[in-house]
Nucleic acid binder design. Structure first.
Length: 269
DNA sequence: TCCCAGGCGATCT
DNA sequence: AGATCGCATGGG
């Protein structure tokens, strides 16, 4: 089925923007995304035709039905938000950000699975992105069904040796305890969707292994709190080198997280 | 082999 | 509050 997206939309940038770890591009140029119990294969017909242009629409060929696209993937890719408009509203005196946004045009802030983001970003601390991917895929292999990310309940049966075999190292107890607390209902990740940003942030941080950075990543990439801007080593370096050590993200208001993604992508690519 | 990775918690001052 | 330090593995 064909889908037209009349806004910034670049799947290569999305899967390489560090916000997701499982989506991949196959050798045939097909992008595979998985969220919850849904999988979709996408081809970018515009890119294949060599006609990719940030100011024009993108034609996609998707493997799912129109209903599934509308119910799942439309929201997942945040297609109700106009990124082009947001990107062009960046004031020209912030030249560094403007250049980052130019190189990152096409990135979207995905609405990803809450439990998957929580576990993934707990794992992410002090790991390279390839190493994060390896650990997550091992978790999926051990506790997931049919290639989907594990249910929290499935991880209750985990042993320390099994988790260690996923390369989690000292994060084993963090991952196990987070999964246990979600499985036992101590943390209702869906209910937390109703909390204001600050309360969501504090609640996430009450999980061992979740600090400022991980809590902001979960808030941004699972709860779509686009005013949150995670500060990691890359962003900290940018703040020091380009903003005189003063965190600029408060000034970006409700789109701070989007600006953070442009900068992060620009830094790691 | 060596170095460091999308940080965090504990333990200081 | 702010600074420092140890931490388990895996990529490059």
């Amino acid at each position: 089925m064909k889908i037209t997206v009349d806004d910034d939309f670049d799947l290569d940038k999305i899967i390489n923007s560090g916000q997701c770890f499982r989506p991949r591009k196959t050798e045939d140029g097909i992008y595979r995304f998985i969220t919850g119990k849904h999988t979709v294969d996408i081809r970018d017909l515009t890119k294949e035709a060599g006609e990719k242009n940030v100011d024009r629409a993108t034609e996609l060929e998707v493997s799912c039905s129109q209903n599934e696209w509308d119910d799942v993937w439309h929201q997942y890719f945040d297609l109700d938000t106009n990124y082009r408009k947001i990107r062009k509203r960046i004031p020209s005196d912030d030249l560094f950000l403007k250049n980052c946004a130019k190189s990152g045009a096409g990135i979207r802030i995905l609405r990803q699975d809450k439990f998957e983001m929580l576990i993934s970003f707990i794992i992410s601390q002090r790991k390279s992105i390839p190493a994060i991917r390896t650990s997550i895929e091992r978790l999926v292999g051990l506790y997931g069904k049919d290639g989907f990310f594990p249910e929290p309940e499935a991880m209750l049966a985990a042993t320390e040796d099994e988790l260690a075999s996923c390369g989690l190292g000292y994060r084993c107890s963090y991952v196990y305890n987070a999964a246990r607390r979600v499985a036992l209902g101590e943390f209702d990740l869906e209910e937390m969707n109703n909390l204001p940003d600050d309360e969501l942030f504090d609640k996430l941080k009450s999980i061992a292994g979740v600090g400022d950075k991980v809590a902001n990543c979960v808030a941004l990439f699972a709860y779509h709190r686009c005013g949150r801007a995670p500060v990691d080593t890359w962003i900290a370096r940018i703040i020091n080198e380009h903003y005189d050590g003063v965190n600029p993200f408060n000034g970006y208001g409700p789109v701070a997280g989007i600006m953070q993604q442009y900068m992060f992508y620009s830094a790691i690519r």
